[in-house]
Each structure stands twice: as C-alpha cells, then as structure tokens.
Amino acid sequence: MKKKIELLVRFQETLGMVLLSIFFLAILVQIIARYSAIPLLWTEELANYSFIWAVFMGASVMVHYKAHFAFTFFSDKFRGKKGAVYDVFISAVLLCFTVPMTLYGIRVVIEFWDYNWITLTWVKMGYTWLCLPIAGGAMTLYLAGHIAEDLRTLKSGEAVS
C-alpha cells in the first residue's frame, strides 16, 4: 500500500508542477498578448483553472508530508506516545475537512459538469472542479495511512519522535 501511496504522491507532485508551469506560461502569453494588442481571452481562464488544480494537488502532497496546518507549539511539546496521540488527533481533525471535501467535491463536479468555460467552450467545467474530490480523496487516504501508522506505533509501544 505504501508503494501505491508514494506513486500517487509522485503523480500529484508532477501534475502540480506541470499545472504551475502552465499557469506561468499562460500569464506570460497574456502579458505578451496585451503588449502586442492581441486579444487572447482564454489565457486568463487557463491561468485561473490551472492554478486552482496546482494548489489542490500541492495541498494533497503537503498533507502526505505532514507539512499541513498544525499547532507546532503543541507538537513540539509532545514526544513519544503523547506525540503519536497528538498526531492521531490532528489527522482526525483534518479528516473532518477532507471527507466532506471529497463528498461535496463530487457533488460540485456533477452539478457543473455540463457547464463550459466561457472562452474555451469545448472544455467542461466538471474537469475544472474534479480537483476537489481528487485532492480530498488523496488527503483522506494519506491521513488514514498516517493514523494507521501512529496506531501501530502506539500498539507496539515504540517511542515516536
């Protein structure tokens, strides 16, 4: 399972980098087009939606690496079993966000599937919002893995640093 999770993380990192590159290229093309007085309306939409995807893919990866929002004041205070219990607590709190993000993300995708982009009418808005359930599902998977690992550590009695 860990190898599949690592593969998913690498895929999300790569996808995030590609989409961030598309964002920067779209901005660059938009700047050049404006100075050249060439109306390229699609660059703004492409930049916006590629940035949204990049942010959500990056957020998923950060959850995997435990680089998400946390109160470091407390995590620095707890070591050993208390640290593992605190990690389980933080992961459970984050699950209260990621599970609804996945479920409501699916609803958003279904709701907006038949809408189209304004400038690129052949692109469905459902593809744009597909990042919500994908990121939410990935975050949920990563958090479940963290919880399972912490519970194994607690059960075995090993100290967690």
Rank of each mutant, 00 (worst) to 15 (best):
M1R: 06
K4T: 10
L7A: 13
L7H: 12
R10Y: 09
L15S: 07
L19I: 00
L20Q: 01
S21P: 15
I22S: 07
I22R: 08
F23L: 05
A26G: 02
L28N: 07
Q30N: 13
L41S: 13
L46H: 02
Y49T: 03
I52C: 13
W53H: 14
A54Y: 09
V55M: 13
A59F: 09
A59M: 14
H64V: 04
H68N: 14
F69D: 10
F69E: 07
F71H: 10
F71T: 08
S75H: 05
S75W: 08
R79T: 14
K81G: 05
Y86V: 07
Y86H: 14
V88C: 10
V88W: 01
I90A: 11
V93M: 08
L94P: 04
P100C: 07
P100D: 01
M101W: 08
M101T: 09
T102V: 00
G105A: 08
R107H: 11
E111N: 12
W113R: 12
N116C: 03
W117E: 00
I118N: 14
T119A: 09
T121A: 12
L132Y: 10
A135W: 05
A138K: 01
M139L: 04
L141S: 01
A148Q: 05
L151Y: 13
T153V: 00
T153Q: 04
S156V: 02
S156L: 01
E158H: 08
E158K: 11
S161A: 13
